[in-house]
Design a protein around this nucleic acid. Structure first.
Lengths: 339, 339
DNA sequence: GTTAGCACTCTTTGCCTTTCAGTGCCAACT
DNA sequence: AGTTGGCACTGAAAGGCAAAGAGTGCTAAC
């Protein structure tokens, strides 16, 4: 069955109202504030029809209506007005990115922070690394008898958190030439190519085998394990929203959101090509129950910068969240292009 | 006024009981479970005396007694039995540290995690860097036209998160020789000496002044800004404790605990020489209200490894927390010494 | 110094009533 | 056929009240 225009309008009003007030919406409040041209009885029958169709529900026979998950989905896809950022908000985003060294991690952190502040929800972010980075330089930097820091410069990032073991009997010169060899072999290749290249390398340079393996391990670890780059901001913001007033719900939310692995899963599973992606309710098992997740993947040209998201109650201010995510995206893009 | 032995015993019972049950303790429960040799009336008069002295209070005229902050202080300093870890707990700590690359950050993270798991409280940790590290090697690693990663190996750590700007007109060779110069000048010095040495350097090597300044800035930034190395684990654990059932308290706690700066302050302010340090209640303004903080500073020889802490309600299981912190300390020490 | 006994206090719980917001339905109206 | 005013009905929320229960403080006797 198709929704009449009036039903759509009423549904939109209900969702809007519920989002701002967190209270069931009554027929009376609708006619008083939005639809003075009809009586509450009329709206009541429309509400009953919308309930019949699964878009609304009541907590008890004599309460107002509350949107269902279906209603939220329809709301974001069709009903919702597009929000616009105020000048103040825009300048807040800009200043957040102002003092910045062009270091990707810092960009991610700042973005997460400003998103959380502007939306008043918990925000999460993960820097993109899908294995398509092209290796520009690899450096093995020894710092203890038997350990070295592996530094990899790619066209997008500087990887500097992988440690490798150095065989005890290896001299500095040998390490140096292993380093040169690694560079010669891997320079210009994409990370994922290197991961697959492990077998080929094995036979050729037996003496540096240990180093080789470590480098390849470290790279595949980087590509596969995305949880390292996860950023979480404003985890306390969730407490501003009444649906988490009960400790149990709160706890459930926090336990999911404080696990970097789970966040990484949320942000990386699913379609990455879509610019803005909205998951409502427990659609995906990764997302905490009764939560919505709005994510945006930012790119500069064809290079992905990262995925950012806002996580909060079903009754989320989608309008605001989306405009903030879009605003941040635009400013990020400007920044990257200017360089 | 001095406390009689019986008063001490009763006070200990009250605190123990209250810690485990979170319920006001009655005279009857004391005689039934712990002191069958006297009547509840006797205990009642003792309780009244202890209340008079400020160690106990009642929520209302006909409720049991609850310990005051003073009582907790006395409890941890004199009354409390020493806890012992079970074999299971010990082995849990050991396995937590088992697979480990000797990288300090990872040690800190693992320690925080296992402490949080065993105690069921939120744990925090900060790796020590007080400026006493001796510089062993400095390397300037260029990775973009105008930016380089500054790598500093000290006797305790590898600093690898400081970026410096490279003047546009500087050639690779110049950078190389700047690097050599920095090494020659700073090697063997302590970080804090380098910070103070800035003026001296200025006049001598004008051409590398920019690089110099950046290096010195980065080092003093590292020494002063401790918030970078802060680790927080089990922030959701706090919800397991009834005193945080109300959203306001919860929120207050979370907002403090999710700020790395504030945590760094908590862990670094105060006497660092003491092995285990207990702050109860709002003694320090850094600590959230109605919270206790138990910290331990671990060292290997005379080198500090870091400070670890547990933060939770006043009604904290101090016995367990302290034995866990001590257990972790012992195992850490063993690990470092074995190397 | 200890104790049994008792009066007293305060919270907790259940129960009842009232109030109120909101709905559903129906007959009348346009 | 759609809209509306009127009205009965429902369930939550709030208030009042009594009974039960947990604890205490006090006192007189041991």
């Amino acid at each position: 069955m198709k929704l009449s225009d009036r039903k759509k309008k009423i549904l939109q009003i209900v969702v809007d109202e519920y989002i701002t007030n967190a209270q069931p919406v009554s027929s009376k409040s609708i006619t008083q504030n939005y639809m003075k041209d009809v009586s509450s009885a009329t709206v009541r029958s429309e509400l009953a029809a919308l309930e019949e169709m699964g878009y609304l529900s009541q907590l008890h026979t004599s309460s107002g209506r509350v949107p269902s998950i279906e209603a939220y989905k329809l709301y974001v896809s069709e009903l919702m007005d597009k929000g616009r950022l105020t000048g103040k908000e825009l300048s807040q985003i800009k200043t957040a990115f102002a003092r910045q060294s062009g270091n990707l991690e810092e960009v991610v952190k700042n973005a997460a922070k400003v998103i959380s502040e502007l939306t008043d929800y918990t925000s999460i972010a993960v820097a993109a690394h899908d294995g398509d980075d092209v290796i520009e330089k690899i450096s093995i930097f020894p710092f203890k008898e038997d350990t070295a820091l592996l530094l990899i410069v790619t066209d997008r990032a500087l990887i500097r958190d992988k440690f490798i073991d150095i065989p005890a009997d290896m001299t500095d010169e040998q390490l140096e030439s292993a380093n040169r060899l690694v560079n010669r072999m891997f320079k210009g290749k994409r990370l994922c190519e290197v991961m697959d290249a492990s077998l080929e390398a094995e036979s050729q340079f037996e003496s540096y085998r240990a180093i080789f393996d470590c480098v390849i391990d470290a790279i595949s670890d980087y590509v596969n394990n995305k949880s390292g780059d996860v950023v979480l901001e404003g985890e306390d913001k969730i407490l501003n929203h009444p649906e988490y007033a009960e400790v149990d719900k709160m706890k459930n939310f926090l336990s999911v959101v404080t696990s970097r692995d789970k966040i990484a899963n949320m942000l990386t599973s699913g379609e990455n090509d879509i610019e803005i992606n909205i998951k409502i309710g427990g659609e995906s098992s990764d997302i905490p129950e009764d939560c919505s997740l709005v994510t945006a993947t930012y790119s500069a040209g064809d290079v992905k910068l990262g995925t950012y998201g806002v996580i909060g109650p079903l009754r989320m201010d989608y309008q605001k969240v989306i405009s903030v995510l879009e605003g941040v995206g635009k400013i990020l893009e400007d920044m990257v292009n200017k360089k």
